[in-house]
Design a protein around this nucleic acid. Structure first.
Lengths: 241, 241
DNA sequence: CTACTGAAACTACGCCGTAGATCTACAGCA
DNA sequence: TGCTGTAGATCTACGGCGTAGTTTCAGTAG
């Protein structure tokens, strides 16, 4: 057989799906999702705008690919004996990824609304399977594992959406109220919110994540045990009166 | 002074911001966010494409307006003596809104990433203030109220993002595995996920929300009391080994 | 009757995603 | 050597996009 390296590719150097996705990610990281266009991507690759279509059938598939690339950094050790502490670590890694790629977060949370689960790039499903395995190995039924997975990653999505919200209106202002622009809000209508200017200004994402994890895991421990059955609780309110 | 109704407006009938937003919402509900363009909106209003710019300075402001319109349906009774049951009701109303307008959910969760809090339409801030008031009236400090608000609405965002995920690949198939397209996934790599086909297919959003609320509120009760101070917990893992 | 004002409509620019046609350069073979 | 098939890269073109700037025009004030 002939070496693939002996015969150089048709045009300049070949290009890999990974390179395409990395170029796309770079654009998104620097300028946001809306700056990513096939033409812009082609320019970044030094190729024809249509070149990327070889590696992503469509623009939306390219977006799914960017999500996959980013999520490929999210490892889950499903052999960890302590599922709670492993979930904590996954949470911290997930947050770190989101903070490192804030402009990707909109894609991260919304692409699954558009692309059916089974058609998503496998890299985006791997953390799901690994988390399920972690929980099943810890004694949960697979259905309960699914519930916990959903609650946990829903919580993580919610956390990063909170953490990455835009708060600052006027960056060069030093007073919190003015910096966040909260003075624009009618004081009669938003008294508490306005009073929270200092708290909003000193938001600490890592600490908030830990406190959320405390609450979530403590609730989980109270409501769901690895033995497999859900407990009924006394504080559960009735749906309608 | 002259009656405003006596003097008919310059061109045909006047138009209100509310009408513009409702027309925009109708397009999004029917065909999704990406189908909403200024030209399309103009057509729906029977007006020039530029007409809508009178009520939204920019396309993104229009999107914020759609979010406001949808969130204006979300009432929070801050006088409720039982904050937990009021949060449950808010959660159910929020879910109902999301289910009624699934195509708006991407906007609902991502617009705050782009528009600074104080510049968002007031209608989107009203549930925030009302929830803070509910919690403060129940004895929480305003900073704790903010934490609970974030955790709670983060949870809700996460829930609807989970509930509205696309799962079905091949709708006319009857077998769960085939309908969800999970047979495409390599069985060695995704054994648990594939096995969960029936559970995925029979997802019940309302029930899942209640179970999530049970866990969240029970965790909240264990970790945070209206007296105001956060408790330290024994199960909290240390950051790094 | 004229001049002004403010809202509505129109025009035009540089983008976009991508279907389809075209070009290029090598592989295999006579 | 020259010919042809083919697969990949590139080009062209279409209809649509957000919106700045300009023009139109009905109503009001003087």
């Amino acid at each position: 057989m002939s070496e693939p390296f002996d015969t150089p590719p048709p045009h300049p150097t070949p290009i890999s799906r990974d390179q395409v996705l990395r170029a796309a990610l770079a654009i998104v990281d620097l300028e946001g999702v809306e700056a990513l266009s096939m033409r812009r991507l082609g320019r970044a690759l030094g190729r024809d705008p249509m070149a990327a279509y070889r590696y992503a059938d469509t623009k939306t598939a390219l977006l799914d690919g960017v999500v996959e690339l980013v999520l490929s950094d999210l490892t889950v050790d499903s052999t960890d004996d302590d599922w709670q502490s492993q979930l904590r670590e996954v949470a911290r890694r997930f947050r770190a990824i989101a903070v490192a790629h804030p402009h990707v977060v909109p894609l991260l949370v919304t692409r699954p609304l558009a692309t059916p689960l089974a058609l998503r790039p496998h890299g985006t499903l791997r953390p799901l399977e690994a988390t399920l395995e972690l929980l099943v190995r810890s004694g949960f039924s697979d259905v309960d594992a699914l519930h916990i997975y959903r609650l946990f990653f829903g919580f993580l999505d919610g956390h990063v959406l909170n953490e990455l919200q835009e708060l600052v209106d006027n960056p060069e202002e030093t007073d919190d109220l003015l910096r966040l622009g909260l003075h624009r809000l009618p004081i009669k209508e938003f008294p508490i919110l306005r009073g929270l200017a200092p708290a909003l200004a000193s938001y600490d994402g890592a600490a908030e994540l830990e406190r959320g994890l405390d609450i979530l895991l403590s609730g989980l421990q109270a409501q769901l045990t690895p033995s497999g059955t859900t407990q009924t609780t006394t504080c559960r309110a009735l749906p309608a009166g």
